[in-house]
């Protein structure tokens, strides 16, 4: 990186540190912070869409669809999210390969589950074994995004369902009185108004999503936790930059990163909420209350 980094053995102090912190692996470490941000920015809208679909299903008058929507939220909330992450990554992968197998190799006669193996024809492998490395990484990342979206979609569905129910009933009755159909009333009256009620819950969900991102590590993505363990582990003199076990410092850096991220989100969400509830007769308006003297 820097001109003085050609011979690390002769370096000391800050010069050593500046070279150490700009090695290729450290650059990959810094890029993995970008991975986390990309995951957050991609997952949030996808999970919101899943949640919206779930909430609509739960509101449906068609009973099986309503059960599906309610069951989806109930099961995901009753079970640890990490179990879902571990489950969906394999299940989605096998499901996709199974479908491709049925389409691409219709005359394959051997069973797919052979004892402890899951065998599909080579053409159905996903991604193909000949695919370049970046395809494998992108595929793994995409699976992670879908898994996050499924789990957080269920939470979002719950929040949005609550938001929809919080819209005053009179609003919908007025819409009906004006002769709107159910569909029109839903899209023109309910959906625009529900966001104010859903926002505190959605903001909460965003914080939870931020704090769930290190679970990427368990899904096999080379994320910040992976690199912190990799770079922090003690390096013998066989390495260019030998150092003792520094994992503690790397994890402290991750802690600081997450604290910053949640703090900034919190401030922005508070501002948004203050703007939306400004002048409204909700509990948000009572902020001048100094609280109890205890």
């Amino acid at each position: 990186m820097f001109s003085w980094c050609t011979d690390p053995d002769t370096l000391e102090g800050l010069a050593w540190l500046s070279c150490y912190l700009t090695t290729g692996k450290h650059m990959a470490f810094y890029r993995s912070f970008g991975t986390v941000m990309v995951l957050l920015l991609v997952t949030a809208p996808v999970a919101l869409a899943f949640g919206f679909a779930g909430a609509m299903a739960a509101r449906s008058h068609f009973a099986p669809l309503s059960w599906l929507g309610k069951g989806y939220t109930a099961v995901v909330r009753g079970v640890p999210d990490i179990a879902f992450f571990l489950f969906f990554v394999i299940a989605l992968d096998q499901g996709i390969e199974y479908l491709r197998h049925r389409i691409k190799c219709p005359d394959w006669s051997e069973p797919i589950r052979q004892g402890n193996d899951f065998v599909v024809c080579p053409a159905a492998k996903m991604p193909l074994s000949t695919a370049p490395q970046w395809v494998h990484e992108t595929y793994g990342f995409a699976l992670a995004v879908i898994t996050f979206a499924i789990v957080f979609g269920a939470f979002a569905a719950n929040v949005l369902y609550g938001g929809m129910r919080a819209v005053p009933r009179a609003q919908m009755e007025t819409a009906e009185a004006y002769g709107m159909s159910r569909r029109q009333a839903f899209w023109r009256i309910l959906v625009p108004q529900m966001w104010v009620y859903a926002l505190p819950g959605l903001g909460n969900l965003w914080m939870i999503l931020i704090k769930a991102t290190p679970l990427l590590f368990l899904l096999g993505v080379e994320d910040i936790v992976y690199w912190a363990r990799e770079l922090g582990g003690s390096k013998t003199s066989a390495f260019t930059y030998p150092h003792p076990d520094w994992r503690l410092y790397y994890f402290l850096a991750l802690l600081a990163f997450y604290l910053l991220l949640t703090r900034v989100s919190e401030i922005l969400l508070d501002r948004l909420m203050a703007r939306l509830t400004h002048g409204q007769a909700t509990s948000g308006g009572k902020s001048t209350d100094k609280g109890l003297a205890i």
């Binding site: 769930a212 290190p214 703090r263």
Partner: peptide
Amino acid sequence: IFVFRGSPLFIQFFLFYEA
């Protein structure tokens, strides 16, 4: 409260284990 609520439990486990 800020430190323990603002950071992921997963990271806290790693951090304390290393410490």
